[in-house]
């Protein structure tokens, strides 16, 4: 399969979605050996592998996957700030998954239907994304409506991560045919429904992208933990310029 030639804005969009998948996969893979129960080791690794597969497909549209993953600096990454947030406790990871997967499922459905350069990748990823949301919803319900402790932890995670959700609905110029407004409405409805079912308080609508808050990821403005993530991810590759692995 030869990659279709992308316009500059489409290439930016490939980086945006590719970086989302790459960085979220990296965070999920950090759980290896630390999961709360062995069954969840297997589940979290499945999520990480799905996302890594998506990242490789998307980055390969934009260039050489390894060159892009390992040799760009933080300011050149286009991922959402949401996906780079540290794992925190399991509740933080689950809520981050809920916010991202709900959005990704909706967006990828639009992309798959749109017939643009991302349609094939989005169609391939659609069942993965559906399962990611299902996993996140399943756990949000159990943590939110479990014990007093799990309820409190999950509420904290929702509050901590909510500020990063406004960015999900910033239009990405290269993603023609998608509808950020519709996405926002559908996302808010679904997330609200899950949080309610999980007996969790539902915050106000996602912060508008004009507020400070998060919102710079697509422009290469990231949060503090991101630099350390990249330092770890890139150091070996960068230490051996030109080497093949």
């Amino acid at each position: 399969m030869t990659a279709p030639a992308l316009t500059e804005s489409e290439r930016e969009a490939a980086l945006a979605l590719g970086d989302d998948a790459l960085i979220l996969s990296h965070r999920l893979a950090e759980w290896a050996g630390h999961a709360p129960v062995l069954e969840e080791e297997v589940a979290l690794a499945n999520l990480a592998l799905d996302l890594l597969g998506q990242a490789r497909a998307l980055l390969s549209l934009a260039g050489d996957e390894d060159e892009l993953a390992f040799r760009r600096d933080a300011r050149d990454f286009r991922n959402l700030q949401l996906v780079e947030q540290p794992n925190g406790d399991f509740a933080h990871t689950v809520v981050r998954q809920l916010f991202h997967a709900t959005w990704q499922e909706l967006l990828y459905a639009q992309l798959a239907a749109g017939g643009g350069p991302f349609a094939a990748i989005a169609a391939h990823a659609a069942p993965e994304t559906r399962y990611h949301r299902d996993h996140a919803v399943t756990w949000t319900l159990r943590l939110g409506d479990g014990t007093a402790e799990s309820h409190a932890r999950t509420g904290r995670a929702v509050r901590a991560l909510w500020r990063f959700t406004g960015e999900l609905f910033e239009p990405v110029p290269g993603l023609a045919g998608t509808d950020p407004g519709g996405l926002r409405a559908a996302w808010t409805e679904r997330v609200t429904e899950t949080l309610r079912a999980a007996t969790l308080p539902v915050p106000e609508a996602p912060p508008p992208p004009t507020a400070w808050s998060a919102g710079g990821g697509r422009r290469g403005i990231h949060t503090e933990p991101f630099g350390r993530l990249l330092a770890e991810m890139q150091h070996l590759h960068r230490s051996h310029p030109g080497a093949a692995w």
Binding site: A29, L38, E41, M233
Partner: peptide, 28 residues
């Protein structure tokens, strides 16, 4: 797993995640 986050290529990273995952599965 100590090397997953530092794997030097995305192909190697996917392989290593899948392998460590298998080990959890085999434990189960």
């Amino acid at each position: 797993a100590n090397w997953i986050t530092r794997a030097p290529s995305l192909r190697r990273k996917a392989i290593l995640i899948a392998k460590v995952q298998d080990e959890a599965g085999h434990g189960l």
